[in-house]
Design a protein around this nucleic acid. Structure first.
Length: 279
DNA sequence: CCTTGAACCTGGGCGC
DNA sequence: TGCGCCCAGGTTCAAG
């Protein structure tokens, strides 16, 4: 996709969760993609005119890539548009050195959305403004989190899910990171900060667990659930290595623990944890 | 300020 | 077989 020219951006409906921004198709047409980036859970597509397309997959969105000319043969198969295909909402028709290809945005539940902004004004885009540091970079540290969590009675789970504290952690990875660091999700965020505002030992452990969870998930190819798939159509398989997420009533996987995974609801989201080894 | 809850949307799974 | 209900994912916004 990088380096390719967008022959046409085809929007097959006027909105996802929000309307597509005014003039998106016209702005994208004929432009070259100079870079692909990511911030938190937003995909950033940099065009050669200084525009950046901002795309979020929501909960059920995915991109898939098709190469070669369109094989939309007329005739008997035309009526048989697959269930999946009807949720193809945006199609980037690309022209690259290797010929035509398409990058297709599919989103059955339409919780995703797209926006566009001038690259020079990205930080003030409403979706990107105020996001915390990436969990994979040096900016995330125990000392930083201690500053953010000091004095907060908010449950640890909710604080970690807050994108203003750390950008890009979702429900699954927060549950997994807390389990790895043996921390109870209902603890106050401030309980990992000393009276003098320094991170506790447990905070250090939490930060390294967050890094490890993300690294392991990337290595394993992502966490797509159920019908949610990879760009090549295969299922992400990190879901097979969840330690607590979606394991209610199953044995805790901490060696020698013997506990049973519980499910509670915090701020309207499911939290899975082991009441025995997470304290 | 902090915290919770509803809304957005669809399809899969389950109980009857 | 089908209907109705609940649930999942992420983010914003309104209300307590």
């Amino acid at each position: 996709m990088e380096g390719a020219r967008i022959a046409r951006l085809e929007l097959r409906r006027k909105d996802l969760r929000f309307p597509f921004p005014e003039g998106l198709e016209a702005r994208a047409a004929g432009r070259r993609i100079v870079a692909l980036g990511r911030r938190a859970k937003y995909l950033l597509i940099d065009l050669d005119d200084g525009t950046t397309i901002i795309s979020h997959l929501g909960m059920s969105g995915s991109f898939r890539i098709e190469t070669g000319p369109v094989t939309d043969a007329p005739g008997e198969f035309h009526h048989a548009r697959s269930k999946d295909e009807k949720h193809d909402h945006a199609i980037f028709h690309l022209e690259g050195p290797a010929g035509p290809s398409r990058v297709i945005y599919n989103d059955p539940r339409r919780f995703g959305f797209m926006d566009m902004a001038e690259r020079t004004a990205l930080e003030v885009n409403p979706f990107l403004f105020g996001l915390g540091p990436e969990p994979t970079g040096n900016e995330l540290s125990a000392a930083y989190l201690a500053r953010r969590f000091a004095g907060k009675a908010q449950p640890l789970k909710s604080a970690l899910l807050d994108q203003k504290n750390i950008a890009g952690l979702g429900n699954i990875y927060v549950c997994e990171a807390l389990w790895r660091s043996h921390l109870k999700p209902t603890r106050a965020a401030a309980s990992l900060v000393t009276k003098t505002g320094r991170p506790t030992q447990q905070m250090e452990l939490l930060v390294s667990s967050i890094r490890d969870v993300i690294a392991d998930a990337i290595k394993a190819g992502g966490s797509s659930l159920r019908d949610h798939i990879q760009t090549d159509g295969s299922l992400g398989y990190f879901q097979h290595s969840f330690s607590v997420y979606d394991r209610e009533s199953l044995p805790c996987r901490t060696p020698g623990c013997g506990g049973t995974v519980a499910r509670i609801v915090q701020a309207g989201r499911s939290t899975f944890y082991c009441p025995v080894c997470q304290k």
